[in-house]
Design a protein around this nucleic acid. Structure first.
Lengths: 151, 151
DNA sequence: GCTTGATCTAAAGTTAACTTTAGAAATTAC
DNA sequence: GTAATTTCTAAAGTTAACTTTAGATCAAGC
């Protein structure tokens, strides 16, 4: 492992638990920008471990990579990010999480009400309130609130 | 619109707000099983509106179609489901939702703590606690993180 | 110095949940 | 009884987040 010139992608993978292919993918979507050595191999620095850590946390919280990249664009370019930098960008996530929790709780309560009364009909059910139905457009997978559900 | 022999797929789409293509897709994944008329066109009954309603609600709650199909397999085959039938299967979702809310709240608190203290490091951060990491799906070897890395 | 082993790039495959397209047949409207 | 509309099937396209594959090059161990 090259330690003076930075970590090789395999080393970074071992440290973060991510797959090498995943790290390369994060680069293509703009989450990290490693240097290259003479032979064209990627070399990562200490700050990159932290960046990936943050990506992993944000993902667990249910944020798509595009959103994470957006938020991480707020980190400084030249210098390594400080604790304050991280705290700043995580604030944006906090607000999102709080909103998602509230939405989930509200839906749960409505589910109870609707199923309980047996309405389950489009004209009256609170769950169908059009005002509630946020952006439901486009194709591809829908990212709904909360963590991934597994059976 | 054919009303005596059941609803046509377009009528059902109009009533539920779903796209015709989506309804057909739900059939291929086993969520509904309409009859066919002499010409081979799908005919839906009143119970199908309710089934789709439930699917839409469950989806908004973040459940994948496969899971919804699993749960809906608990509905009766021969007779139309009663309110009790629906209440029974929605109970499974309720428990899931409550768990997800709790998980989100816990993650939010840990995010506050971790970012606040600036640790964001694999060895100590509560967010990396392997015990917390529930559904890690997908293929490929996922390492469990635990190796001390950097302070 | 040679043989592994790691990395490189680019492209294609995967899963979920659909949509879009294409050509044909059934239904409805007038 | 046409013309217009709807529906049919099957296949391919879309998005997100990756993984897999293939062929080539770089780096490391002995």
């Amino acid at each position: 492992m090259a330690s003076k010139g930075g970590l090789a992608i395999g080393d970074l993978a071992a440290r973060t638990g991510l797959a090498v292919s995943a790290i390369r993918h994060y680069e293509t979507v703009g989450l990290i920008a490693p240097l290259r050595n003479a032979g064209g191999h990627r070399r990562y620095g200490r700050a990159d471990i932290r960046r990936l850590s943050f990506v992993m946390i944000a993902q667990r919280l249910g944020f798509p990579l595009a959103r994470i990249a957006e938020v991480m664009a707020g980190l400084p370019e030249g210098r390594p990010p400080t604790r304050e930098d991280w705290a700043g960008i995580s604030g944006a996530f906090r607000r999102d999480i709080d909103a998602r929790i509230a939405a989930l709780a509200s839906l749960r309560d409505k589910l109870d009400g609707c199923i309980g009364c047996g309405c389950l009909s489009l004209d009256r059910c609170a769950l169908y309130n059009p005002a509630d139905r946020a952006g439901q457009r486009g194709s591809g997978p829908r990212y709904l609130m909360g963590d991934a559900v597994d059976g």
